[in-house]
Design a protein around this nucleic acid. Structure first.
Length: 532
RNA sequence: GGCUGUGUAGCUCAGUUGGUGAGAGCGCACGACUCAUAAUCGUGAGGUCGGCGGUUCAAAUCCGCCCACAGCUACCA
């Protein structure tokens, strides 16, 4: 059995249209999943939607449909984006309304209760009767008439107390800090880890983890401890429910599940807005329930539109489908990972995307493949050339390309797609220099054997690059490998079948065989054309 | 306010434990080539390394202060 690799995206709260920020997270996680599959791991990739909560219930009521109907409609939008727009290779699209998830969430609750970490008390806060929800202190203000109102909705709020179950988060600050210290890669990037650590060092308050004011949620299981009994009907406060999806996806609580081997998760990929929930609440819940902790939480940044936040009011929200239609899926996937470090905020613009597409994809990679394959097609009888004795320059560029897999493995361990791609494109730069320096179009007339060597070396570099970028641009990479005459195997990282065969990383050192037929090449990465 | 971090060529950024005359990519200018998707290759442009002061034989790299910007400062997800 191969080593397992279990990774997840955050589950989306499907109360609106997905935007490019959602796509960013799904694409990055997909690239990670594909890379690991190509590298022979037994991968499980989970994504999905977080469907409970008061807001969903209210929206459904406004629309005159059931919460489940609303949730299904919106979950379908996200799943459709994964399937038909972004080509996300998830293994399961989990919904928090799935039956096995309900059982899972109730079981982790029972275990936290059994650990003595749950008690009954009252939750108090500023409550808006009109909005039927609580507001945090800083979400309210006192208006000119001396009335406290919710800033967001402008409705009056009153100090209200509601029965609620609490989780003894305050007991876990020291344990969490010890865990962070012992596992320096648990939270990345470092700057986010610092924020989390400082926060925990400041002390943790217990957490309200149930509500009675609405019922669109997973029911809190019957208490076993008499002190926890109540007549009121509680549903789980959303974070216990939502976070638990990650273990549901690994078969919890079924001890015999074949999915059990995937836990603990290797990687949770999330946005910076929910780092606290994943780096503090989630590990505390798991510690309480006696479940192993995930190995790493990678926190990515947000995307800005030409330096400005995306917002509906500015009208600059980018929808993934529109981008994919305009630039092409592989360009979008490449751009998002190549343009800025994962973990830092990024800024995108039309010009930026086009620059990457033309300079990196069409010119640097696409044209290198096209010029070398064209020469092979025209001058070597349409088959992979026969290399002769290799010069120091040949050896150098081949060695640089050969080293990329280890470079990628190192960078991917930290989800540093930016540097991984940078390293690959450095080799492409050098290969273009090599090609120009060797002048195979001159050798064609002066030294055909040498020309064949140069072309073979170039094709070998392109083959390795193509193998690597299957993870990032599965469609284009497949075309490239087709053009090189590499036998098809599996599906560019979409499934675990990609871990073997001539297109897997197991075949990294299987050089192109001279004599293999090469078809007449056509450009794999056309330049950007704007239809105006 | 507190905490954390950032501030290096037009743009995006690299710059290990302080030490060859401060770098890359993109964009730009000029030149070369013609196999190739008007692609590619070479050269250049001379940036007080945010500011001031200090430590040192020597600092972008250490210390102090200041300025600017960003993030975090708990229960909407």
């Amino acid at each position: 059995m191969n080593t397992t690799y279990y990774l997840t995206t955050a589950i989306a709260y499907p109360n609106g249209e997905p935007h490019i920020g959602h796509a960013y997270e799904y694409i990055a996680t997909d690239v990670m999943a594909r890379f690991k599959r190509l590298d022979g791991y037994d991968v499980r990739f989970l994504t999905g939607t977080d469907e409970h909560g008061q807001k969903m219930q209210q929206t459904a009521e406004q629309e005159g449909i059931s919460p489940m109907e609303l949730a299904t409609r919106n979950a379908d939008v996200f799943q459709d984006m994964d399937d038909n727009v972004l080509d996300v290779s998830y293994d399961r699209f989990i919904r928090t309304t799935d039956a096995d998830h309900k059982a899972s969430a109730q079981e982790i609750w029972r275990r936290m209760e059994a650990a003595g970490d749950i008690y009954l008390d009252t939750y108090s806060g500023w409550y808006s009767v009109r909005d039927e929800r609580f507001f945090a202190d800083d979400e309210t203000h006192v208006n000119d008439d001396g009335v406290r109102i919710a800033t967001e909705t402008g409705t009056e709020v009153t100090w209200t107390e509601e029965e609620s179950y609490f989780f003894r988060l305050s007991n876990y600050a020291d344990k969490l800090l010890a865990h962070y210290q012992a596992n320096p890669d648990f939270i990345a990037p470092q700057t986010r880890a610092n924020e989390v650590i400082r926060f925990v060092e400041g002390g943790l308050e217990d957490l309200s983890i149930s509500r009675t004011s609405f019922d669109w949620g997973i029911p809190v299981p019957e208490a076993t401890d008499p002190a926890l009994k109540t007549d009121k009907k509680h549903v789980m406060y959303v974070w216990v429910d939502a976070l638990t999806n990650y273990i549901t996806g690994a078969g919890f609580p079924d001890a015999d599940s074949e999915l059990k081997r995937y836990w603990p998760a290797d990687l949770h990929v999330i946005g910076k807005d929910i780092s606290r929930f994943h780096c503090i609440f989630w590990p505390a819940f798991l510690m309480s329930a006696g479940i192993e902790l995930p190995k790493r939480v990678m926190i990515h940044g947000f995307l800005n539109n030409e330096g400005e936040k995306m917002s509906k009011s500015l009208g600059n929200v980018v929808h993934p489908a529109g981008w994919v239609e305009r630039y092409g899926l592989d360009t979008v996937r490449f751009f998002l990972l190549r343009e800025f470090p994962f973990g830092a905020d990024g800024s995108y613009s039309h010009d930026g995307v086009v620059r990457r597409k033309n300079a990196d994809l069409s010119n640097n990679l696409g044209n290198l493949a096209q010029r070398s394959l064209s020469m092979v097609y025209k001058n070597v009888d349409g088959q992979v050339p026969q290399p002769g004795e290799l010069t120091a320059q040949d050896e150098q560029i081949l060695a640089d390309a050969a080293g990329l897999l280890d470079t990628w493995r190192t960078h991917f361990e930290k989800q540093d797609f930016y540097r991984a791609l940078g390293a690959a494109w450095k080799v492409l730069d050098d290969t273009n220099s090599y090609f120009a320096d060797q002048e195979p179009w001159v050798l064609r007339k002066t030294d055909e054997a040498r020309m064949q060597t140069v072309l073979w070396v170039t094709l070998e570099v392109v083959r390795r690059i193509a193998l690597l970028i299957q993870a990032v641009m599965p469609g284009s990479a497949t075309k490239l490998l087709d053009a090189l005459g590499v036998d098809a195997s599996a599906d560019a990282g979409r499934t675990n079948a990609s871990g073997e065969g001539p297109r897997s990383y197991a075949a990294w050192d299987d050089q192109l065989a001279p004599g293999t037929p090469i078809a007449k090449p056509t450009p794999v990465f056309p330049r950007h054309e704007e239809d105006e």
